[in-house]
């Protein structure tokens, strides 16, 4: 059970934060199909940053001293760098769709094609292979929190909660959850959030009340890019062993599905992300999941193919879409370029 919750969280958190990225863009009226591409780009820049600083000996001292606060601060810094990279990359999308009134679907597709190409081009030039790793070691010993890092002995039992939420976790996960909550509050409880949402519903009305629709859409897409970039790095850090290879295995698209599944609302998205994270986790390690602790790995014994588990999130999304398409409420003005002259 402990293992299941821990793993589910690891998969769910990037999904959650990237789905929220989608919400910020779509609520401001821009369809951000480029989530996948921005994740790839953010992951690459984040990993490159870790690689370069590690190469320069930036935190070898902290590692040697077991100073986990400094190491986590460093991971946080890398997340910020990835977020900045994502924000910059997403400017390509906002420029095309806000200033040039381009087709947002095609613009997003272009970024999705661009990111892996660009990333692989540079990775090949930098390390002469297709994967950029950390300069030394693996991510878990560097950035994972364990009992021993916190001063407990290896044999101490921290109880169910302690074992689940403190031992062998990435603090980046909790940072993302916190960020998710803060941003959701901003989206719903502040003036900025209200204005942003109004631009996705009826930009003409928003403009008539003195809101700069273009600026709001830039803001929405840039926040979206930053979150997606950060989500990409968190994905790379927690599930890809802090390596970048121009691929996030469709997580960006899955996040898009989570967003629709969650009906563009943060609370529903958190639930949907957990559900999808659970599926990802089951698909990745169903043979070793022991739910009630009796030593029998039930899912492994049923003998359902792993491919079915892997397919599940996408099938469920389609089925849910089929049932809720009448009720599903996308922001009304999403995907429509705002033209001041139009009524």
């Amino acid at each position: 059970m402990t293992f299941l919750i821990r793993q589910t969280l690891i998969y769910a958190v990037p999904l959650m934060i990237v789905a929220l990225a989608g919400v910020f863009a779509e609520r401001s009226g821009i369809i951000n199909l480029a989530l996948e591409g921005i994740m790839i780009f953010g992951a690459f820049i984040g990993v490159l940053f870790v690689n370069i600083v590690q190469e320069a000996g930036g935190f070898a001292g902290a590692k040697a001293d077991g100073d986990w606060v400094a190491l986590q601060g460093f991971a946080l810094l890398a997340m910020l760098v990835a977020a900045a990279a994502g924000a910059v990359f997403s400017l390509l999308l906002s420029f095309a769709s806000v200033n040039l009134k381009a087709d947002q679907t095609i613009g997003g597709t272009a970024l999705n094609l661009m990111a892996p190409a660009l990333v692989l081009f540079f990775i090949r030039i930098i390390v002469n292979q297709n994967v950029l790793d950390m300069a030394m070691g693996d991510a878990p010993p560097w950035f994972m929190l364990r009992k021993t890092t916190l001063g407990f002995s290896r044999t101490d039992d921290l109880g169910f909660l302690g074992e689940t939420f403190i031992n062998q976790v990435y603090p980046a996960t909790y940072v993302c959850i916190l960020l998710f909550i803060v941003l959701s509050v901003i989206l719903y409880k502040t003036r900025f959030g209200l204005r942003l949402r109004s631009c996705g519903e009826n930009p003409q009305a928003a403009d008539s009340l003195g809101i700069n629709v273009y600026r709001m859409r830039y803001a929405g897409t840039t926040i979206s890019g930053a979150l997606a970039g950060m989500g990409g790095f968190v994905y790379a850090l927690t599930t890809a062993n802090c390596s970048a290879n121009g691929d996030v295995a469709g997580f960006g698209f899955l996040a898009l599905a989570v967003m629709i599944f969650g009906n563009w609302k943060p609370l529903n998205i958190a639930g949907a992300a957990l559900l999808f994270g659970l599926f990802k986790c089951v698909a990745a390690s169903y043979t070793s999941i022991d739910i009630n602790g009796d030593g029998v790995c039930l899912l492994g014994e049923i003998g359902i193919s792993v491919h079915l588990y892997r397919m599940m999130p996408y099938v469920i999304t389609l089925v849910v879409l089929a049932f809720t398409s009448k009720k599903s409420r996308a922001p009304k003005a999403e995907g429509i370029p705002y033209d001041k002259g139009q009524r």
Partner: peptide, 21 residues
């Protein structure tokens, strides 16, 4: 390496998005 051609293709798609402009 060959990925530069994918970059070129992506740039072309990006420009096609606003070919109307």
């Amino acid at each position: 390496n060959e990925y530069i051609t994918d970059v070129i293709i992506a740039a072309i798609v990006y420009l096609s998005a606003f070919s109307l402009v």
